[in-house]
Design a protein around this nucleic acid. Structure first.
Lengths: 340, 340
DNA sequence: CTGAAAGCGCTAACAA
DNA sequence: TTGTTAGCGCTTTCAG
């Protein structure tokens, strides 16, 4: 593998000049620049970012921590982040951390601590005070997606408001017998997403004067999770609701599959609304609140790289939540209220 | 950020000794080792892998190229690769390359060319001769998943055999009117997966003496893709098959959703078999050939790291295909032949 | 077993 | 505009 010394020799200049010519920093005459570039091409020279970062302190590498890869929302965020970073010439190093674990400690204390990254994006991970300190201690920008992180910018939707909006949509259609199927209140996701969505649902129901008793069912936030819950809760025609607000599209899809198996027509006999904007929504006649994960990903990258350019004094105490766009997408055949 | 010099000073040893003590390479008395380690702990020292790799040539970082993140199979591979690498103390840098594009060229000529990686794992990407040369030129191990790569080890299933096996399963149940829904023959995926699976299907059908005309339909390899195809091909009762072999579980799921919407009972009126081992298989009464993506991922990592330890002389001309386990998983209610 | 010194590949001062 | 020099943080000879 050739070094910049080889390039310099071939172009008959000093290493420093070759460096300036190739990196674009500092003055080089147009003529020598072309000579250096030509030399680099002929021997197939590519800078060693390791060596460069040793002296510049910049690695052109961003660390990303994320709890799931195969859930739709997270996969979309990841794709958009990777794409945005690549466009800007950055590498993305990925850490997949499903739950608090020994591995997680190791990632924070070892992997993230080695000045290998110019910055870190934390996707859907609620960091402990200690972890935030660890990260801040490195004096590198940090951006969050999915909820606030002390002292840094983050991108998130307002979960309470989203849940409330979704529920109000069902209420406005005339539904009164509405269920919420969401994540377990005992096993919270990070940022208490489960309880926030439940809170939004409850608020809307109470405001409309409906009782809350027996309106909430907890399941895993996956399609099979929603399916199982659907089988058990929709089986009994007497206690069957006319509408369900699901905490995620994946749950909603599972519910719809179960409903159809039980001979319940969706949406005419059962309206289902979810959150995310999942690409399967249309084929399942699902109404959903789009969460625009790709936008969130790009926004995070933009914000992080901006911080890198001009080290903004980190927002002191509270984090900045940039609310994302929330668009209600009604599917081809809109949910209908129960026939009188 | 503290350096090894700080540690050395605090422990009253030379930098070299501190280095030996912390890395475990070279002789250090048990007593000084503990002193050095203690010193490192107190000031929170973590090695800079960049600086270390500059002298050792090892980066403890593996590059991964993958065409999709949100498709189930790829997400699973990614998760398992990341996990296996982390266990071994390696970072994973991810490049998401959906299609041949200018971006792709840049990744190979720039990002992968900068000796930032100890090795590369290529998941489901068929590399051009030029790209393989690029990679080999770096004299770093390379492992493939999904199909052969010239001169290196790779992990893959036998697509022709898998398709044939799936089709034979349907034939053995007594089906004669079988369709294959798979990827377009014009827009091949890498490694010609589409045509291989079609070939396997055709072989089984011919062997059983069935005509091929009108048995193949092409769609996108996604759930909505399968759904659309299902709507159009299952709509007409006269030309409806009794069984379908889908090239992927995602297609199969889409087909089943469409079938159910059209009032076709699955599996009693329509048997569907797919490939992958998707977690939704059971709830959709789908029979599937498991492809064990997580095993493939771990196998790739093991193979790569082994190559790293003892630089095996690359398998000269042809690549080694380690066939993966192929298990047929029958769902709760098995596909049945058409009633006579 | 430990220390001193050299140097990995590169860029940033500073001179020229 | 270019060259010289120093040094980023670490590991590795090579002496001791």
């Amino acid at each position: 593998m050739s070094t910049i010394a080889d390039v310099a020799r071939l172009a008959s200049v000093a290493k420093a000049t070759a460096s300036r010519a190739l990196s674009g920093r500092g003055y080089v005459s147009e003529e020598t620049r072309t000579r250096v570039v030509a030399a680099a091409r002929t021997i197939g020279y590519v800078v060693s970012p390791n060596a460069a970062s040793l002296v510049t302190g910049r690695t052109k590498n961003i660390g990303v921590i994320i709890p799931y890869i195969s859930r739709w929302f997270f996969a979309e965020v990841l794709e958009s982040v990777e794409q945005a970073l690549l466009e800007q010439g950055y590498d993305m190093t990925l850490y997949n951390l499903p739950a608090p674990s020994p591995e997680r400690v190791r990632v924070f204390e070892y992997f993230l601590a080695r000045k290998r990254f110019d910055g870190v994006i934390s996707v859907g991970v609620e960091l402990s005070d200690e972890e935030v300190d660890h990260l801040h201690h490195m004096r590198r920008p940090l951006v969050g997606i999915g909820g606030p992180i002390r002292g840094v910018h983050s991108i998130a939707i307002n979960d309470v408001a989203a849940a409330r909006l979704a529920t109000e949509h069902l209420l406005s259609l005339g539904h009164t017998d509405i269920l919420h199927v969401g994540g377990s209140q005992e096993e919270q996701m990070d940022f208490d997403v489960h309880s926030k969505r439940l809170a939004g649902f409850n608020a809307a129901m109470l405001a409309a004067g409906h009782p809350l008793a027996g309106t909430f069912y907890a399941c895993e936030l996956t399609v099979p999770g929603g399916y199982e819950m659907g089988r058990s809760v929709l089986g009994d025609p007497r206690r069957r609701p006319t509408a369900i607000f699901a905490a995620s599209d994946e749950i909603a899809i599972g519910l719809i599959v179960a409903a159809r198996e039980l001979g319940i027509l969706v949406p005419s006999e059962l309206s289902v609304i979810g959150i995310d904007g999942h690409p399967y929504a249309e084929m399942f006649r699902l109404t959903t609140l789009e969460q625009h994960p790709r936008n969130q990903g790009r926004l995070a990258v933009t914000s992080l790289l901006a911080d890198l350019e001009s080290p903004t004094p980190a927002p002191s105490a509270e984090s900045t939540v940039l609310p994302t766009n929330l668009v209600m997408r009604s599917s081809t055949s809109a949910p209908r209220p129960p026939l009188p």
